[in-house]
Design a protein around this nucleic acid. Structure first.
Length: 292
DNA sequence: AGGCAGGTGGCCA
DNA sequence: TGGCCACCTGCC
């Protein structure tokens, strides 16, 4: 394999190992794998990038040599949210008065929200309905290898919706999508007829963008919020999934509240960076459960 | 071995 | 609005 030399990657705040793993492989993106040497290998758009900690504990990156451009590092920094002040956002969360939030920040002190290509986030979360992360990753990998383009030996890019709209439906069948296939195909056909529709949606304020996304088949409130949070930098998006429902009911004593009420509680209690709070609590709750 | 899974859409009261 | 159910099928 032909990789560029390792180069330092400076981020503020710096990653600890746990937060890095949770950020890359905790259900925001489904395109990162960890090799036996604890090196993370990830893909988005036409990027193939590696991240590791050096022996001295410093974060380093390298890229597939055939795909390197002068902008690769900038693309990586953007993807990792380097243009966002995470320390300030974290500090603005109500952790001083909220022990659950405080514990999740202690567990994942440098967790970030990724800034993925919106189209890839949409595809990933269209796959996500009632599936575990490992299975969503499997579907994405199969979609890339079956419908996507091989951009370097052994590395396939996730298909665009235009490519999905053009592919034979039997190709989707072998990607283990189940009932999600008809949503993905429906969304692909809708978008194929409307070039620029997603980019326009990304540029809208959060409420309008969410309303628009929910016209797509297979996109309800939860998927729309995930796409806007992880694929458009809308940090006020607050995805209400089974985990956060469980957390809010159990930890905050909100048994009997409807999902709509829980969503409202989240927006009010956590504020403009509710999405960051959601991901912190999601990660914490998931780890607590797996430790039991 | 069989129930469950980062939901959505449709239908009923 | 709120609740219930079908939807596919690979994995733990």
């Amino acid at each position: 394999m032909n990789w560029t030399y390792w180069k330092p990657l400076k981020l503020t705040p710096g990653f600890d190992r746990t937060s890095l793993a949770e950020t890359l492989d905790g259900g925001q993106s489904f395109r990162w794998v960890q090799d036996p040497a604890d090196i993370w290998i990830g893909q988005w758009s036409d990027n193939v990038v590696r991240i590791r900690f050096s022996d001295e504990g410093h974060l380093e990156w390298s890229t597939h040599a055939e795909l390197e451009t002068p902008d690769t590092k900038d693309h990586l920094l953007t993807y990792l949210g380097a243009d966002t002040d995470w320390e300030s956002l974290k500090d603005e969360l109500p952790w001083r008065s909220d022990p659950h939030l405080r514990k999740s920040i202690e567990a994942f002190p440098s967790l970030r929200i990724l800034r993925q290509p919106m189209e890839e986030a949409l595809l990933g979360f269209l796959c996500s309905a009632t599936k575990r992360i490992v299975q969503i990753k499997q579907m994405c990998r199969l979609l890339a290898e079956t419908v996507g383009r091989e951009i370097a030996p052994g590395y396939w890019q996730l298909p665009t919706f235009a490519e999905i709209a053009d592919t034979d439906p039997t190709n989707l069948k072998i990607c283990l999508l189940g009932f999600r296939a008809k949503y993905i195909q429906g969304t692909a056909r809708f978008l194929a007829e409307r070039p620029g529709w997603l980019a326009e949606t990304e540029a809208l304020p959060y409420p309008e963008a969410k309303e628009r996304l929910m016209h797509l088949p297979g996109v309800g409130e939860k998927v729309a919020d995930c796409v806007l949070l992880f694929g458009a930098g809308k940090l006020e998006a607050f995805p209400v999934d089974t985990w956060i429902i469980q957390t809010l009911k159990k930890r905050y004593g909100l048994d009997g509240w409807t999902n709509r009420q829980l969503a409202q509680f989240g927006r009010v209690h956590y504020g403009p960076a509710a999405g960051l709070a959601q991901q912190l609590l999601f990660s914490w709750e998931r780890r607590e459960k797996s430790a039991m």
